[in-house]
């Protein structure tokens, strides 16, 4: 009798949960506790200040004033510029490669080798991989030595290292795979019959690419952009080693603030970037409104 009651209760709960009656409230509660409250605290912290390694509970705009006066906001903007620019570059490089890997590469052995090679960045320490470039691109490095030996330059090319160019260069390899994998996975799901149908209906290769393949790959592109751009915004190993500390990005600036236990400034940096990301997300939502919003793009996966 008791077992039957318990069983019925569980069944009732499951039915209600499956119907969405509890799902939404549960999600809202968990999301509020795990995400919204910490974000609120982050924002609150940005209105406090630190004195002598201690946070002073005296709300003011002091931290935000200093945030703009000391140029920390430019760090956030530079970080965004580099992250967005590099993400676009990665997309341009990764999309054709991922598409070829998914649809063009006929050798399963070669495909397996290439996929394995793409995972290498995940196994090696980033600083170890990056420091090698300094030896190659430095004033007395291999590249400059070769350039001078060949008579191409008479003295070392110094902008190869410790510049924004070298930061872009250093970021290219570590974040290539994070763009390739999602696009590759989505591209493999595209039924070849769609491509045949497109061709049968008279579309040329470019039309098939932009009217069939690209729309169907959008979920992978969006995932690739997220997996590439978001971690890149917190990057500080490459900017330090390749930029020589001259290309200050938000990860390092936040670390600097934390080194004086200056949590309010670290919070203001994070809040500022978060606000910009919200604006970008809103813009993306507006742009994709005609296709049913961002969620609508993922409908392609149902095909």
């Amino acid at each position: 009798m008791a077992n039957a009651l318990v069983s019925r209760s569980i069944r009732t709960w499951y039915t209600q949960a499956a119907s969405g009656r509890w799902t939404v409230p549960t999600f809202i509660i968990v999301w509020t506790v795990v995400v919204i409250v910490p974000l609120f605290l982050l924002l609150l912290y940005s209105f406090l200040e630190t004195k002598g390694f201690k946070v002073v509970w005296d709300p003011s705009f002091h931290t935000w004033d200093r945030f703009f006066e000391t140029g920390r906001w430019t760090v956030a903007m530079r970080t965004l510029r580099i992250a967005i620019g590099m993400t676009v570059i990665e997309l341009v490089l990764a999309f054709p490669f991922a598409l070829w890997l998914a649809k063009g590469c006929r050798s399963q052995g070669l495909k397996a080798i290439l996929l394995t090679l793409l995972t290498i960045p995940f196994f090696l320490d980033l600083s170890s991989r990056t420091i090698i470039w300094r030896a190659l691109l430095g004033s007395n490095g291999v590249v400059n030595t070769v350039l001078m030996e060949l008579g191409i330059t008479s003295e070392p090319v110094e902008w190869l290292i410790f510049t924004e160019f070298s930061v872009f260069f250093g970021l290219a390899a570590p974040y290539f795979a994070t763009m390739v994998f999602p696009i590759f996975l989505v591209a493999t799901l595209i039924d070849d019959e769609y491509l045949d149908a497109s061709r049968d209906l008279g579309a040329n290769p470019l039309q098939s690419l932009f009217l069939v393949i690209v729309p169907l790959c959008l979920p992978g592109v969006i995932a690739g952009v997220v997996f590439t751009m978001v971690p890149m915004m917190g990057e500080w190993v490459v900017p330090q080693l390749m930029g020589g500390g001259k290309v200050n990005m938000i990860g390092r600036s936040t670390e600097d603030a934390l080194s004086t236990l200056n949590y309010p400034t670290a919070a203001s940096l994070s809040a500022f970037v978060l606000a910009i990301l919200v604006v970008l997300l809103a813009a993306l939502t507006l742009l994709t409104r005609r296709r049913g919003g961002i969620a609508g793009l993922f409908e392609a996966l149902k095909l």
Partner: peptide, 17 residues
């Protein structure tokens, strides 16, 4: 130092310039 926050912030200004 007594004013390490202002020192760190001014140094950030230098780094960001």
């Amino acid at each position: 130092p007594d004013h390490q926050e202002s020192m760190e912030e001014e140094w950030q200004r230098f780094l960001n310039a």
